[in-house]
Amino acid sequence: MSTESPLLSVRDLQTSFPMRSPVLRRTVGQIQAVAGVSFDIPAGGTLGLVGESGSGKSTVARTIIGLEKARSGSIVFDGDELTSLPKASMRRVRRQLQMIFQDPYASLNPRATVEQIIAEAWQIHPDVVPRNQHRAEVRDLLERVGLNPDHAERYPHQFSGGQRQRIGIARALALRPKLVICDEAVSALDVSVQAQVLNLLDDLRCDLGLAYLFIAHDLSVVRHISDRVAVMYLGRIVETASQDELFTRPLHPYTQALLSAVPDPKPWDKPAREQIIIGGDVPSPADPPSGCGFRTRCWKAEETCAHDVPELTTRLELHPAACHFATELAGAAR
Protein backbone atom coordinates (compact mmCIF):
# COMPACT_ATOMS: atom_id res chain seq x y z
CA MET A 1 0.00 0.00 0.00
CA SER A 2 1.39 3.35 -0.97
CA THR A 3 0.97 6.41 1.18
CA GLU A 4 -0.19 8.49 -1.77
CA SER A 5 -3.88 9.24 -1.86
CA PRO A 6 -5.74 6.88 -4.15
CA LEU A 7 -7.04 7.93 -7.57
CA LEU A 8 -10.57 6.93 -6.68
CA SER A 9 -11.84 6.67 -3.18
CA VAL A 10 -15.40 5.60 -2.53
CA ARG A 11 -16.78 5.80 1.00
CA ASP A 12 -20.05 4.38 2.24
CA LEU A 13 -21.72 4.87 -1.12
CA GLN A 14 -25.46 4.33 -1.16
CA THR A 15 -27.69 4.44 -4.21
CA SER A 16 -31.34 3.64 -4.22
CA PHE A 17 -34.15 3.62 -6.73
CA PRO A 18 -37.71 4.62 -5.97
CA MET A 19 -40.10 1.71 -5.96
CA ARG A 20 -43.40 2.69 -7.50
CA SER A 21 -46.75 1.08 -7.04
CA PRO A 22 -47.85 -0.29 -10.40
CA VAL A 23 -51.24 1.41 -10.44
CA LEU A 24 -50.81 4.93 -9.16
CA ARG A 25 -47.08 5.17 -9.82
CA ARG A 26 -46.62 6.60 -6.37
CA THR A 27 -43.30 6.03 -4.69
CA VAL A 28 -43.98 3.33 -2.13
CA GLY A 29 -40.44 2.63 -1.03
CA GLN A 30 -36.79 2.54 -1.92
CA ILE A 31 -34.80 -0.27 -3.49
CA GLN A 32 -31.39 -0.12 -1.93
CA ALA A 33 -29.26 -1.14 -4.90
CA VAL A 34 -26.00 -0.08 -3.27
CA ALA A 35 -26.10 -0.19 0.51
CA GLY A 36 -22.86 1.32 1.73
CA VAL A 37 -19.86 0.45 -0.38
CA SER A 38 -16.30 1.63 0.22
CA PHE A 39 -13.15 0.98 -1.75
CA ASP A 40 -10.03 2.65 -3.16
CA ILE A 41 -8.34 2.36 -6.50
CA PRO A 42 -4.75 3.62 -6.74
CA ALA A 43 -3.50 5.24 -9.93
CA GLY A 44 -2.67 2.49 -12.39
CA GLY A 45 -4.34 -0.18 -10.28
CA THR A 46 -7.20 -2.49 -11.13
CA LEU A 47 -10.01 -3.36 -8.80
CA GLY A 48 -12.24 -6.23 -9.86
CA LEU A 49 -15.80 -5.95 -8.62
CA VAL A 50 -17.53 -9.33 -8.74
CA GLY A 51 -21.10 -10.22 -8.06
CA GLU A 52 -24.18 -11.87 -9.46
CA SER A 53 -27.25 -10.14 -10.82
CA GLY A 54 -28.83 -7.90 -8.23
CA SER A 55 -25.58 -7.41 -6.37
CA GLY A 56 -25.50 -3.72 -7.29
CA LYS A 57 -22.10 -3.83 -8.96
CA SER A 58 -23.29 -2.07 -12.11
CA THR A 59 -25.08 0.55 -10.06
CA VAL A 60 -21.81 1.30 -8.30
CA ALA A 61 -20.25 1.96 -11.70
CA ARG A 62 -23.14 4.05 -12.93
CA THR A 63 -23.13 6.12 -9.76
CA ILE A 64 -19.41 6.81 -9.93
CA ILE A 65 -19.65 7.94 -13.52
CA GLY A 66 -22.70 10.07 -12.82
CA LEU A 67 -25.41 8.13 -14.62
CA GLU A 68 -27.18 7.58 -11.30
CA LYS A 69 -27.35 9.86 -8.29
CA ALA A 70 -25.78 8.76 -5.05
CA ARG A 71 -28.12 8.94 -2.09
CA SER A 72 -25.29 9.34 0.34
CA GLY A 73 -21.61 8.68 0.75
CA SER A 74 -18.62 10.15 -0.97
CA ILE A 75 -16.79 9.56 -4.22
CA VAL A 76 -13.42 11.29 -4.33
CA PHE A 77 -11.73 11.13 -7.69
CA ASP A 78 -8.32 12.68 -8.15
CA GLY A 79 -9.00 15.06 -5.26
CA ASP A 80 -12.49 16.12 -6.33
CA GLU A 81 -15.61 15.13 -4.43
CA LEU A 82 -17.90 14.01 -7.29
CA THR A 83 -21.13 13.91 -5.33
CA SER A 84 -21.07 17.65 -4.67
CA LEU A 85 -19.24 18.87 -7.74
CA PRO A 86 -20.91 21.64 -9.77
CA LYS A 87 -21.90 20.70 -13.29
CA ALA A 88 -19.18 22.72 -14.98
CA SER A 89 -16.38 21.13 -12.98
CA MET A 90 -17.98 17.75 -13.50
CA ARG A 91 -17.35 18.09 -17.23
CA ARG A 92 -13.67 18.61 -16.53
CA VAL A 93 -13.50 15.61 -14.22
CA ARG A 94 -15.39 13.41 -16.64
CA ARG A 95 -12.51 13.54 -19.05
CA GLN A 96 -10.42 11.57 -16.62
CA LEU A 97 -13.13 9.05 -15.90
CA GLN A 98 -14.50 6.95 -18.72
CA MET A 99 -16.53 3.81 -19.17
CA ILE A 100 -16.65 0.77 -21.44
CA PHE A 101 -20.10 -0.73 -21.70
CA GLN A 102 -21.30 -4.29 -21.76
CA ASP A 103 -23.23 -4.56 -24.98
CA PRO A 104 -21.11 -3.93 -28.06
CA TYR A 105 -24.30 -3.66 -30.10
CA ALA A 106 -26.32 -1.24 -28.00
CA SER A 107 -23.48 0.98 -26.86
CA LEU A 108 -22.58 2.38 -30.28
CA ASN A 109 -24.90 4.80 -32.03
CA PRO A 110 -26.05 2.85 -35.11
CA ARG A 111 -26.41 6.07 -37.12
CA ALA A 112 -22.88 7.34 -36.62
CA THR A 113 -19.64 6.30 -38.27
CA VAL A 114 -16.76 5.02 -36.21
CA GLU A 115 -15.00 8.33 -36.64
CA GLN A 116 -18.04 10.28 -35.46
CA ILE A 117 -18.43 7.96 -32.47
CA ILE A 118 -14.84 8.39 -31.37
CA ALA A 119 -14.56 12.09 -32.20
CA GLU A 120 -17.76 12.94 -30.34
CA ALA A 121 -15.71 13.26 -27.16
CA TRP A 122 -13.60 15.98 -28.72
CA GLN A 123 -16.62 17.92 -29.87
CA ILE A 124 -17.77 18.02 -26.28
CA HIS A 125 -14.26 18.81 -25.02
CA PRO A 126 -12.73 20.77 -27.89
CA ASP A 127 -9.53 21.54 -25.99
CA VAL A 128 -8.39 17.90 -25.96
CA VAL A 129 -7.83 17.50 -29.68
CA PRO A 130 -8.14 20.38 -32.16
CA ARG A 131 -10.62 19.88 -34.98
CA ASN A 132 -8.10 19.53 -37.76
CA GLN A 133 -6.44 16.63 -35.98
CA HIS A 134 -9.58 14.58 -35.35
CA ARG A 135 -9.02 12.34 -38.33
CA ALA A 136 -5.39 11.55 -37.53
CA GLU A 137 -6.17 11.04 -33.88
CA VAL A 138 -9.05 8.64 -34.69
CA ARG A 139 -6.72 6.63 -36.88
CA ASP A 140 -4.20 6.47 -34.05
CA LEU A 141 -6.80 5.26 -31.61
CA LEU A 142 -8.14 2.64 -34.02
CA GLU A 143 -4.67 1.33 -34.54
CA ARG A 144 -4.06 1.28 -30.82
CA VAL A 145 -7.13 -0.91 -30.20
CA GLY A 146 -6.23 -3.25 -33.04
CA LEU A 147 -8.60 -2.08 -35.76
CA ASN A 148 -7.84 -1.09 -39.31
CA PRO A 149 -7.59 2.75 -39.38
CA ASP A 150 -9.03 2.74 -42.91
CA HIS A 151 -12.34 1.59 -41.47
CA ALA A 152 -13.04 4.89 -39.72
CA GLU A 153 -15.82 5.72 -42.17
CA ARG A 154 -17.72 2.51 -41.55
CA TYR A 155 -20.82 2.07 -39.44
CA PRO A 156 -21.01 -0.14 -36.33
CA HIS A 157 -23.15 -2.82 -38.02
CA GLN A 158 -20.27 -3.54 -40.38
CA PHE A 159 -18.16 -4.88 -37.52
CA SER A 160 -18.28 -8.06 -35.46
CA GLY A 161 -19.03 -8.00 -31.73
CA GLY A 162 -15.39 -8.07 -30.70
CA GLN A 163 -14.49 -5.30 -33.11
CA ARG A 164 -17.35 -3.18 -31.84
CA GLN A 165 -16.09 -3.59 -28.33
CA ARG A 166 -12.74 -2.32 -29.54
CA ILE A 167 -14.50 0.75 -30.93
CA GLY A 168 -16.09 1.25 -27.51
CA ILE A 169 -12.65 1.03 -25.96
CA ALA A 170 -11.26 3.56 -28.43
CA ARG A 171 -14.08 5.93 -27.53
CA ALA A 172 -13.33 5.54 -23.83
CA LEU A 173 -9.68 6.33 -24.50
CA ALA A 174 -10.37 9.40 -26.63
CA LEU A 175 -10.28 11.77 -23.67
CA ARG A 176 -7.10 10.23 -22.27
CA PRO A 177 -8.66 9.13 -19.00
CA LYS A 178 -6.91 8.05 -15.84
CA LEU A 179 -9.60 5.61 -14.78
CA VAL A 180 -11.73 3.45 -17.03
CA ILE A 181 -14.74 1.63 -15.68
CA CYS A 182 -15.32 -1.63 -17.53
CA ASP A 183 -18.89 -2.71 -16.87
CA GLU A 184 -19.07 -6.36 -17.97
CA ALA A 185 -16.93 -5.23 -20.88
CA VAL A 186 -16.11 -8.73 -22.12
CA SER A 187 -19.17 -10.66 -20.97
CA ALA A 188 -21.06 -10.48 -24.25
CA LEU A 189 -18.15 -11.72 -26.33
CA ASP A 190 -17.31 -15.19 -27.57
CA VAL A 191 -14.53 -16.88 -25.61
CA SER A 192 -11.99 -16.63 -28.40
CA VAL A 193 -12.66 -12.90 -28.81
CA GLN A 194 -12.94 -12.26 -25.09
CA ALA A 195 -9.32 -13.30 -24.69
CA GLN A 196 -8.26 -10.82 -27.38
CA VAL A 197 -10.07 -7.96 -25.66
CA LEU A 198 -8.70 -8.93 -22.24
CA ASN A 199 -5.19 -8.86 -23.63
CA LEU A 200 -5.89 -5.49 -25.21
CA LEU A 201 -7.11 -4.07 -21.90
CA ASP A 202 -3.98 -5.46 -20.27
CA ASP A 203 -1.73 -3.81 -22.85
CA LEU A 204 -3.51 -0.47 -22.59
CA ARG A 205 -3.07 -0.48 -18.85
CA CYS A 206 0.65 -0.97 -19.19
CA ASP A 207 1.12 1.48 -22.05
CA LEU A 208 -1.12 4.28 -20.81
CA GLY A 209 -0.92 3.77 -17.06
CA LEU A 210 -4.68 3.34 -16.84
CA ALA A 211 -6.51 2.32 -13.72
CA TYR A 212 -9.55 0.06 -14.12
CA LEU A 213 -12.64 -0.59 -12.13
CA PHE A 214 -13.39 -3.93 -13.71
CA ILE A 215 -16.91 -5.15 -13.11
CA ALA A 216 -17.88 -8.69 -14.06
CA HIS A 217 -19.79 -11.72 -12.95
CA ASP A 218 -17.12 -14.04 -14.32
CA LEU A 219 -14.58 -14.77 -11.60
CA SER A 220 -11.93 -16.19 -13.87
CA VAL A 221 -11.98 -13.04 -16.00
CA VAL A 222 -11.77 -10.83 -12.92
CA ARG A 223 -8.92 -12.87 -11.53
CA HIS A 224 -7.08 -12.53 -14.78
CA ILE A 225 -7.08 -8.75 -14.88
CA SER A 226 -7.34 -7.47 -11.30
CA ASP A 227 -4.83 -6.52 -8.62
CA ARG A 228 -7.49 -6.39 -5.97
CA VAL A 229 -10.91 -7.96 -5.95
CA ALA A 230 -14.07 -7.01 -4.09
CA VAL A 231 -17.03 -9.40 -3.95
CA MET A 232 -20.50 -7.85 -3.81
CA TYR A 233 -23.71 -9.39 -2.61
CA LEU A 234 -27.01 -7.55 -2.25
CA GLY A 235 -25.55 -4.07 -2.44
CA ARG A 236 -22.65 -4.66 -0.05
CA ILE A 237 -19.06 -5.70 -0.40
CA VAL A 238 -18.77 -8.95 1.52
CA GLU A 239 -15.07 -9.55 1.00
CA THR A 240 -12.11 -7.73 -0.45
CA ALA A 241 -8.51 -8.77 -0.86
CA SER A 242 -5.65 -8.87 -3.27
CA GLN A 243 -6.41 -11.08 -6.24
CA ASP A 244 -3.98 -13.73 -5.08
CA GLU A 245 -5.26 -13.77 -1.54
CA LEU A 246 -8.93 -13.83 -2.44
CA PHE A 247 -8.68 -16.70 -4.85
CA THR A 248 -6.46 -18.86 -2.70
CA ARG A 249 -7.95 -18.05 0.69
CA PRO A 250 -11.57 -16.92 0.42
CA LEU A 251 -13.05 -16.16 3.83
CA HIS A 252 -16.67 -15.32 3.21
CA PRO A 253 -18.97 -18.27 2.60
CA TYR A 254 -20.42 -16.53 -0.43
CA THR A 255 -17.00 -16.08 -1.98
CA GLN A 256 -16.24 -19.71 -1.30
CA ALA A 257 -19.47 -20.82 -2.94
CA LEU A 258 -18.93 -18.51 -5.87
CA LEU A 259 -15.41 -19.81 -6.42
CA SER A 260 -16.57 -23.36 -6.10
CA ALA A 261 -19.31 -22.76 -8.68
CA VAL A 262 -16.96 -21.53 -11.39
CA PRO A 263 -16.85 -24.21 -14.05
CA ASP A 264 -13.37 -25.64 -14.44
CA PRO A 265 -12.44 -26.80 -17.93
CA LYS A 266 -9.89 -29.26 -16.58
CA PRO A 267 -11.20 -30.61 -13.29
CA TRP A 268 -9.06 -33.76 -13.52
CA ASP A 269 -5.83 -31.76 -13.22
CA LYS A 270 -6.53 -30.75 -9.65
CA PRO A 271 -7.01 -32.57 -6.40
CA ALA A 272 -10.70 -33.28 -6.00
CA ARG A 273 -12.24 -30.25 -4.39
CA GLU A 274 -15.48 -30.35 -2.60
CA GLN A 275 -18.04 -28.46 -4.58
CA ILE A 276 -20.18 -26.10 -2.56
CA ILE A 277 -23.57 -25.69 -4.19
CA ILE A 278 -25.64 -23.11 -2.39
CA GLY A 279 -29.39 -23.31 -2.73
CA GLY A 280 -31.87 -20.62 -3.58
CA ASP A 281 -31.50 -17.35 -5.41
CA VAL A 282 -30.24 -13.88 -4.64
CA PRO A 283 -33.02 -12.21 -2.61
CA SER A 284 -34.67 -9.16 -4.11
CA PRO A 285 -32.94 -5.91 -3.15
CA ALA A 286 -36.45 -4.53 -2.68
CA ASP A 287 -36.95 -6.87 0.26
CA PRO A 288 -33.54 -7.85 1.62
CA PRO A 289 -33.27 -10.20 4.59
CA SER A 290 -32.51 -8.69 8.00
CA GLY A 291 -28.97 -8.82 9.27
CA CYS A 292 -26.54 -10.48 6.91
CA GLY A 293 -27.86 -10.48 3.34
CA PHE A 294 -26.41 -13.88 2.61
CA ARG A 295 -27.84 -15.69 5.60
CA THR A 296 -30.82 -17.10 3.66
CA ARG A 297 -28.45 -19.17 1.53
CA CYS A 298 -25.64 -19.67 3.99
CA TRP A 299 -24.82 -23.04 5.54
CA LYS A 300 -23.12 -21.28 8.45
CA ALA A 301 -25.98 -18.97 9.37
CA GLU A 302 -26.97 -18.74 13.03
CA GLU A 303 -29.15 -16.59 15.25
CA THR A 304 -26.80 -13.62 15.26
CA CYS A 305 -26.74 -13.42 11.44
CA ALA A 306 -30.41 -12.47 11.41
CA HIS A 307 -29.85 -9.56 13.82
CA ASP A 308 -26.42 -8.11 13.22
CA VAL A 309 -25.14 -6.95 9.90
CA PRO A 310 -21.58 -8.28 9.84
CA GLU A 311 -19.06 -5.53 9.24
CA LEU A 312 -16.43 -5.65 6.57
CA THR A 313 -13.45 -5.77 8.88
CA THR A 314 -10.16 -7.53 9.12
CA ARG A 315 -10.20 -10.42 11.55
CA LEU A 316 -7.10 -12.28 12.69
CA GLU A 317 -4.84 -10.20 10.43
CA LEU A 318 -6.44 -11.68 7.33
CA HIS A 319 -8.15 -9.60 4.71
CA PRO A 320 -11.51 -7.91 5.28
CA ALA A 321 -14.61 -10.10 5.08
CA ALA A 322 -18.12 -9.32 6.23
CA CYS A 323 -18.94 -12.54 8.03
CA HIS A 324 -19.38 -13.29 11.72
CA PHE A 325 -17.59 -16.59 11.23
CA ALA A 326 -14.81 -15.47 8.94
CA THR A 327 -12.03 -16.66 11.22
CA GLU A 328 -13.61 -20.07 11.57
CA LEU A 329 -14.05 -20.34 7.81
CA ALA A 330 -10.48 -19.26 7.27
CA GLY A 331 -9.37 -22.25 9.30
CA ALA A 332 -11.60 -24.55 7.29
CA ALA A 333 -10.37 -23.17 4.01
CA ARG A 334 -6.76 -24.01 4.74
Binding site: S160, G162, V193, Q194, A195, Q243, T248, V262, P265
Partner: peptide
Amino acid sequence: SGLMASVPAVDGPRDRLVPIQGSPPD
Protein backbone atom coordinates in the same frame (compact mmCIF):
# COMPACT_ATOMS: atom_id res chain seq x y z
CA SER B 1 -6.61 -25.72 -28.61
CA GLY B 2 -7.16 -22.02 -29.23
CA LEU B 3 -10.36 -22.05 -27.21
CA MET B 4 -8.66 -23.87 -24.37
CA ALA B 5 -5.91 -21.25 -24.32
CA SER B 6 -8.44 -18.41 -24.38
CA VAL B 7 -10.17 -19.31 -21.13
CA PRO B 8 -8.70 -17.56 -18.10
CA ALA B 9 -8.28 -19.94 -15.17
CA VAL B 10 -9.50 -19.46 -11.59
CA ASP B 11 -6.36 -21.03 -10.22
CA GLY B 12 -2.82 -21.69 -11.23
CA PRO B 13 -0.45 -19.12 -12.69
CA ARG B 14 -1.94 -15.98 -14.21
CA ASP B 15 -0.38 -16.14 -17.66
CA ARG B 16 -1.13 -13.92 -20.56
CA LEU B 17 -3.96 -15.41 -22.59
CA VAL B 18 -3.25 -16.75 -26.04
CA PRO B 19 -6.35 -15.82 -27.98
CA ILE B 20 -7.42 -17.03 -31.39
CA GLN B 21 -6.72 -14.30 -33.91
CA GLY B 22 -9.38 -12.65 -36.00
CA SER B 23 -13.16 -12.64 -35.80
CA PRO B 24 -15.77 -15.37 -35.63
CA PRO B 25 -16.82 -16.63 -39.06
CA ASP B 26 -19.18 -14.61 -41.20
